[in-house]
Design a protein around this nucleic acid. Sequence first.
RNA 1: GUGGGCGUAGCUCAGUUGGUUAGAGCGCCAGGUUGUGGUCCUGGAGGUCGCGGGUUCGAUCCCCGUCGCUCACCCCA
Length: 428
Amino acid sequence: MSEHVSSFQAPTGTHDVLGPASAQWEGLVAIFADFAYRYGFSLVISPLFEDVGVFNRGIGEHSDVAKKEMYVFEDRGGRTYALRPEGTASVVRAFVQHQPTTPWKAWYVTPAFRYERPQAGRFRQHHQLGVEVLGTDDPAVDVEVITLAWRFYEAIGLRRVRLLINSMGHDECRSAYVELLREHLRDNVLSLCDEHRKVWNENPLRVLDCKKDECVAVTSRGPMLPDHLCDDCREHFAAVVAGLFSLGIETTLAPRLVRGFDYYTRTTFEFVADALDGAQNAIGGGGRYDKLAEQLGGKPTSGIGFGTGIERLLLTRAAENPHAPDLVNRELDVFVVDTTGEDSATVLLDTLRQTGLAADRAYDGRSMKSQMKVADKSGARFALLIGPQELAAGEVTIRDLRSDNFEQAQQRVARADVVAVIADLLSK
RNA sequence: GUGGGCGUAGCUCAGUUGGUUAGAGCGCCAGGUUGUGGUCCUGGAGGUCGCGGGUUCGAUCCCCGUCGCUCACCCCA
């Protein structure tokens, strides 16, 4: 800042996550990875950018995300790519490309990019955790995916989360329904809100999602999707709801829940955090996409997935309980203070770390007082002091940084015994 | 894309109804005699008052523009 050179900052809508906040991320990802493992999922890593067609065909060219929110660019070879705006399309593209044996259960953690104006809980780069299951339309897998999400939310301490669930039907029963809805909207065009009065015909389902009083009044008098499902879809939906009920997972039937991506069929769901009173209270969502693999050039393959936003999860945790415990412990065990200027600290640290302890030190040959201050701020449980006396005696002074009694707080032990003594002290 | 609020030290903010060397708290660094943190005391470093232009004898303060942050709409995680 002292120079007149211009500097840089993170692009609009993006953020650097530094410690200690980043430890919360580590914790979330680690817990989710563990859940995924316990539910039989394996990690899938796919590219952050794809041929733009993957997303256009996947999420639908008429969706808002595809129309105006994608980061599209041309590379030096003239190919048109887009940064992934969500996780599912890439994973399904990978499935189609590699044709793993089914059912294929994959989980991911990824950034997602959307060109939007940032606001509370919404960014141009956000991060999602998610799972996908390809190759079965068994309602049991719908239940399993939703259960994984639900139990995960419980595990990270969320208490005020509601599960909204709906069925979009399959191609035929949905398009039949859309026609019914279209007729109903046509008869009531003048009663719709300003915006939908113009565009209701392009995608009638979107009107269901409108929160304006005018649109709500019209659609609530009109046909509802769950009432117009075919027998198969109705049975499938009933099986999903029954499965969740048998697990004690409370569901809210949401007949007007229409999610933003066109690929959804049958089961769709969303998790809403009541602690987030802003507009951005959806912390996760997903659904079935039985036509997506075909749309991406693969064999007809059923699929279902779920994604949840890391930033919103952390916001929700903080909103529900400002004093929520850390999701992962990143405190140091010991801090080495060495004023001899020789390599005692270097050697001792190597030993400590090899035994699995978390250990750090001060640099630049600072005074003992200065190093002790750093030790204190590091949060370490113990300080290990090496001055001329310890050096000469081949010993180390162990000081308990949580004790305020000078006499009882420290003891001198032989270098060779340090690891054992520390291990013993930490186990108490 | 549209609209509101805001932009002064690393952080949170005062302040100047336009006038000499711009402040506080926290944080950071160094001391408070002989090798020891957390409290306390002292001292220090650190700011083109977002950037550009205009008005003025003079602008951090007024005006315009611009960039950025933030909140909301739309939509979404």
